[in-house]
Each structure stands twice: as C-alpha cells, then as structure tokens.
Simulated scan of single mutants.
Amino acid sequence: MSADYSFVADAMKQAVPWVKTVGVEFPEVSGDRVVAELPDREELRNHVGGPHAAMMFGVAETASGAVVMAAFAPHLSKVTPLVARSEIAYKKLALGTLRAEAVLARPAAEVVAELEAGTRPEFPVDVTITDANGVTTGEMTVVWTLRPNR
C-alpha cells in the first residue's frame, strides 16, 4: 500500500499564500519527489520575456518545500521545517511554463533518526528547473532543517 500525498497541494496553498497567488500546481507528489509547475503569465516575466528570476527561485523553493512536507508529514506536529540556506544556478533563459522537480537528497528515515537522537538535522533537496520545451534552465539546492516545536 502506498502513502497518500494528495493533501500536499492544498496544504502548500494554505500554508504559503504566494503559492496560491501565482498559481503553482503540483502534478506529481511522492514521499521523496515533487514536481511543481508555474504557468507562464505576462505579469511574472522579466525584461527579456521569460519568467523573472524570482519566479524561478520561487517555484523551485516551493517544490522543495512540498517534498519536505510529503516526506515528513507524520512528524509535522512535532517539528517546523525551515530553509537553512539555498543556492541557485541560472543556466538558460526560461520560456513558458516552468517545471521544478525536487528530489529529497537524503533518506527521510535517516533525517528522522537524527531528529529522534536529539540533533537538529539538515538535509538537502535538489531541484531541476525546466521550461516548456524541457530545457534545463536552472538548478537549485535547498538545505532544510527540522526545528523541534517548543
């Protein structure tokens, strides 16, 4: 029996108002991988007609957050996920709809074991951003931590 991750899209739209405002969708969600898409809209473009760099960063960070939510859903009553740091590389001009594929770069069980041992874990999520033609336009790594709730 596989886990049900259908809650992630709605939870992201409620927890992060920007996600709903710009229209991010989540066509694929699993416990270690999420695909987020940002539609092409004129008001989100830059001076050369592609999605603004802030939109590329935003959809990639959002995809990373969604995979964190999916991977650690059973623990979210005890912890708050927070971004510790991130790095993005803009590779090519993006055109059209953006697609961000986020992959948990460490097994969730390993991260949870650190948490249960009393350590505040950090773990990377790798994100590949592609445009409407499937061209890789950016790559990002977001390092997350799980802060225990007080």
Rank of each mutant, 00 (worst) to 15 (best):
M1H: 05
A3V: 14
A3G: 15
S6G: 12
S6C: 05
F7G: 12
V8N: 03
V8L: 07
A9S: 10
M12P: 05
M12V: 09
M12N: 07
K13V: 12
Q14N: 14
P17M: 11
W18N: 00
K20D: 15
T21D: 01
V22D: 02
F26V: 06
P27I: 08
E28L: 08
V29R: 03
S30L: 06
G31S: 04
G31W: 07
D32N: 10
R33C: 08
A36N: 03
E37G: 02
D40S: 14
E42W: 07
E43I: 01
E43R: 01
E43Q: 00
E43K: 00
E43T: 05
L44D: 03
L44A: 05
L44T: 05
N46G: 04
N46T: 00
H47P: 04
G49D: 00
G50L: 09
G50A: 04
P51R: 05
H52C: 01
A53F: 03
M55G: 02
A60H: 06
A60I: 13
E61H: 06
G65C: 12
V68C: 10
V68L: 11
M69V: 10
A71S: 11
F72P: 07
P74M: 12
H75L: 14
H75G: 01
H75S: 04
H75A: 08
H75M: 14
V79D: 01
T80I: 02
P81G: 04
S86G: 08
S86D: 08
I88T: 05
Y90I: 14
Y90G: 06
Y90F: 15
Y90H: 00
K91A: 06
L93H: 00
L93A: 00
A94C: 08
A94D: 07
G96M: 13
G96E: 11
G96Y: 12
T97Y: 11
R99P: 07
A100Q: 13
A102E: 08
L104I: 13
A105L: 10
R106L: 15
P107G: 15
A108M: 10
A109E: 15
A109F: 05
V111N: 00
V111G: 02
V112F: 01
A113T: 01
E114P: 02
E114Y: 00
A117L: 02
A117E: 05
P121N: 13
E122C: 10
E122Y: 10
E122K: 15
E122D: 09
E122N: 14
F123W: 13
P124I: 14
P124H: 10
V125L: 13
V125Y: 06
D126A: 12
D126Y: 13
D126P: 03
D126V: 14
V127F: 09
A132Y: 12
A132S: 15
A132K: 14
N133T: 15
V135S: 03
V135K: 14
T136P: 01
T136V: 15
T136S: 07
G138Y: 06
G138S: 11
M140P: 00
T141F: 06
T141A: 06
V142N: 11
V143F: 12
W144G: 11
T145C: 11
T145K: 07
L146H: 02
R147D: 02
N149M: 05
N149E: 02
